Simulated scan of single mutants.
Amino acid sequence: MDLHQLEKKYRNELLNNVIPFWLQKSQDTEFGGYFTCLDRQGNIFDTDKFIWLQGRQVWMFSMLYNKVEKRQEWLDCAIQGAEFLKKYGHDGNLNWYFSLDREGNPLVEPYNIFSYTFATMAFGQLSLATGNQEYADIAKRTFDIILSKRDNPKGKWNKVHAGTRSLKSFSLPMILCNLSLEIEHLLDEEFLKKTSDECLHEVLEVFYRPELGGIIVENVNADGSLSDTFDGRLINPGHGIESMWFIMDLGVRLNRPDLIDKAVKITLRMIDYGWDKEHGGIFYFMDRKGFPPQQLEWDQKLWWVHIETLISLIKGYQLTGSEECLALFEKIHDYTWKHFKDPEHPEWWGYLNRQGEVLLDLKGGKWKGCFHVPRGLYQVWKTLEKINIEKQETLLLNAI
């Protein structure tokens, strides 16, 4: 693999294909915010607005403005989305709805904690871009609400009968590993360390199960024990793999090589566990005992799973020099670019069947927006850039 050519490939795909698609096709210039339900060509097929996708897009354009180039059109795109969210996205007390209609009227109550997490990311990153204190305050206050809801994220909208089967989910501690670094500029050092320590404990000592061969489970009993139920047996390989690059980033930030090494080991194990040896690609859901999963979409191949895997593998290679990471990166890069990239129109497909054929030719919907594809392209591009710079520096040192 020519890593210099790959670096250019990811950069070009991000800046000349994917980002222009969302910039041009998704902005609602009449009511504000973004359309995410876009067909293959980028035509709108539904106008409802989903808060976590709105927040993700604000974050994406703010991040690009902060870290790639000070393009005014990117900042304008982020600000108009944030202003829509600020005005309509919550109940007045920063309880963030799940969805709104086009005009901003609430459709679904604030049951979903990820509306909160991506609002936090959005306003945190935009506060860096603008210096706007109100945005910083929204991010910090929402983050405090998230922490207060950790034991019951859905609050009064929880459908589970209290006291019968109390399971805790991997999703929230996983995302808090990333979120705590995202809003580090709003947290004091001691609070950041405390929060990250708690998340690391949950991910690596509660949901990571050496006794199951080193895999990550999605749900455990409240006491941390395994549950022999549909939810307790559920494995989401993509979740486990994605969380590992969050852990690698924390390992770098905290100067903890042990965390990086463990994250690389778990990444490789989860890929081996989740890989479809018959058709290629990584399964969406699995049952740890091999029973039929309750999710009928269990054998689909999803965009975000493969893109997040690419991030974890290339970071693993950059941080540890693991040749196994590099070899797997090449294998999954080939699968991902062959199956998910639309050769005729911008942006990528999200949903394939088990055989790797396009199942839905949409470019965005209720769950897919301006996030995993561009964030993944950015992360892989920047990691390849680091690798190439490091190799160049090594060559120069050896030549002296």
Score class of each variant (00 low, 15 high):
residue 64 L to Q: 10
residue 247 I to T: 09
residue 308 E to M: 06
residue 102 R to I: 07
residue 217 V to C: 09
residue 261 D to Q: 15
residue 380 V to F: 10
residue 126 L to T: 12
residue 309 T to L: 04
residue 231 D to V: 02
residue 57 Q to F: 09
residue 163 G to R: 13
residue 203 V to W: 11
residue 143 F to L: 09
residue 395 L to G: 03
residue 299 D to L: 00
residue 146 I to T: 07
residue 364 G to M: 07
residue 84 F to T: 14
residue 338 K to Q: 14
residue 259 L to I: 09
residue 344 E to I: 03
residue 256 R to P: 14
residue 58 V to I: 15
residue 335 Y to H: 05
residue 141 R to P: 00
residue 221 N to Y: 13
residue 62 S to R: 07
residue 58 V to S: 01
residue 48 D to I: 00
residue 207 F to C: 13
residue 150 R to P: 05
residue 46 D to K: 14
residue 347 E to K: 01
residue 347 E to G: 04
residue 96 W to R: 08
residue 69 E to H: 10
residue 123 F to M: 10
residue 364 G to C: 07
residue 360 L to V: 15
residue 286 M to E: 02
residue 390 E to P: 00
residue 293 P to T: 14
residue 94 L to K: 10
residue 380 V to M: 10
residue 233 R to L: 10
residue 338 K to W: 07
residue 108 V to F: 07
residue 175 I to E: 09
residue 317 Y to F: 15
residue 382 K to C: 02
residue 53 L to C: 13
residue 110 P to T: 12
residue 227 S to H: 02
residue 105 N to F: 01
residue 50 F to E: 14
residue 348 W to C: 01
residue 133 Q to T: 14
residue 342 D to K: 09
residue 241 I to C: 03
residue 231 D to W: 12
residue 343 P to G: 01
residue 45 F to W: 14
residue 398 N to F: 11
residue 158 N to S: 11
residue 132 N to V: 08
residue 69 E to P: 07
residue 174 M to R: 05
residue 87 K to P: 03
residue 221 N to A: 13
residue 357 E to Y: 02
residue 106 P to Q: 06
residue 79 I to W: 05
residue 227 S to A: 15
residue 136 A to W: 08
residue 258 D to K: 04
residue 100 L to T: 01
residue 45 F to T: 11
residue 133 Q to V: 11
residue 232 G to K: 04
residue 176 L to C: 03
residue 334 D to F: 04
residue 105 N to Y: 01
residue 150 R to D: 06
residue 242 E to F: 02
residue 131 G to L: 10
residue 61 F to I: 12
residue 31 F to L: 07
